[in-house]
Amino acid sequence: MTDILQILRDYGLLLLVGQYPNGPLGGLAITFAMAVLGILLAFPLGVLLALGRISPFALFSWPSTVIVYVARGVPLIMLIFWMYYFLPVATGRPVSGFSTMVATLVVYQASYIAEIVRAGIEGLPKGQMEAGRSLGLSYLQTMRKVILPQALYNMVPTLLSQFISTIKETSLGYVIGVNELTFAANQINTTLLTKPFQVFAILAAVYFALCFSLTLITHQLERTVTARRASAPTRGVPQVQPAVVIASE
């Protein structure tokens, strides 16, 4: 136990912010930055992919379907290697590990979000689209004003849940040398060598503290939403819950 406290005292800052201010930012700060960027960019992309998936035009549905299937059927670590080698080729410039990870996380999470949004859209009665079209609204207008507001009505707990997954997924940045939390812990372990259990136990505890508190907030949010819906059962939306809890991590 004293070991653990000792490690925390000596290396706690390394875990939290890397070598900043004497060097680049690292550790938990980088983990958090990647996760926030990842989920913020993944959400709009996910909605676009969902619309692409249901589009009757092969030009949109084909690439969207391929992206979603590949991102969900191939391990994340494999996607990271793909991106690591091909982003520099595609952009013609060197790409940092951080950017590679964020790009991968965006595509990965967007694919999961796309399926959730798609389930939400397809769960709505067909009459909603028909009614919108019959009034003279275009497909996109009906999507924007009638379908998506209903399908995305309860996305906040879902997005929070995907955010928690993203935090866990950032740990894979380790394999391409991104200086995030897991990488920092490994550095400490290689330095100390004699206390692997303590180091990795601390690592697990930090992730746990972060993710578990976010999980508790998500549960609370879900309870609030359910309570609000129970007291005003008639306002708003026929709740469409995706039947599958699509865990991405």
Partner: peptide, 16 residues
């Protein structure tokens, strides 16, 4: 379509 009014059997009001 904006020149023809259509009323559905299941109303199809927008619940949100």
């Amino acid at each position: 379509r904006s020149h023809i009014g259509f009323v559905f059997q299941s109303f199809n009001l927008f619940p949100h």
